[in-house]
């Protein structure tokens, strides 16, 4: 395959990483193009609604800066998810701290804000959307990784810091709850 463009589009993640480390900037672009949307979806499933471009960008920067810690036993995408998740958790922590500070400064209670509740209210969501929104954050995360990213349970377990068996249970519980919600609706 002599055409460099088709070479990057067909290359595996490992090949692209090697190309980038060899100085080929197109490889980084290809990796971003390949995984950015998944990261954006994943961030949304974690309740993030704003600044997702920055989050995705920071995830890639972190990843490229620490490629030597990338282990061969998980896919690059799974690894990117774990970095993204850590950034999201960090964001939530600092947001919580900021809100607490506002509460202290202004002397009033801040109502705990569930990003997904807001999202669902805004969207006048349909039945399935509402059902998904009823899941616990962990169920939603596992369900989303399984359904929209098609990840094997073993890879999901790495992202959510759990076991393969537990993730399987979370997925099936999520499915059962969605069905129950729909039959009650």
């Amino acid at each position: 395959m002599g055409d460099p463009k088709s070479r990057t589009s067909e290359a595996t993640d490992a090949e692209l990483i090697a190309q980038w480390q060899g100085g080929d900037q197109r490889a980084a672009t290809a990796l971003v193009s390949r995984h950015a949307q998944s990261l954006g979806r994943f961030a949304a499933s974690l309740g993030e609604r704003e600044g997702i471009d920055e989050l995705v960008q920071d995830t890639f920067v972190r990843a490229f800066q620490s490629l030597d810690t990338f282990r061969a036993d998980s896919s690059l995408r799974t690894w990117l998810f774990t970095i993204c998740k850590r950034l999201v958790l960090d964001r939530k922590r600092s947001e919580r701290r900021r809100r607490n500070q506002v509460e202290l400064d202004e002397g009033h209670a801040v109502v705990e804000y569930d990003a997904l509740d807001g999202m669902v209210a805004e969207e006048a969501a349909g039945r399935v959307e509402r059902a998904v929104a009823k899941l616990t954050p962990l169920q939603r995360e596992v369900f989303s990784l399984r359904v929209t990213e098609g990840l094997p349970y073993g890879e999901i377990a790495k992202v959510v810091d759990s076991t393969e068996g537990a993730c399987r249970v979370h997925y099936h519980n999520a499915m059962r709850l969605i069905k129950e919600y729909l039959s009650d609706d």
Binding site: R62, Q65, S66, F70, S74, W79, T82, K158
Partner: peptide, 9 residues
């Protein structure tokens, strides 16, 4: 850990 997330060395 962000630079070396869970599962990293």
């Amino acid at each position: 850990g962000a630079a070396a997330p869970r599962g990293a060395a």
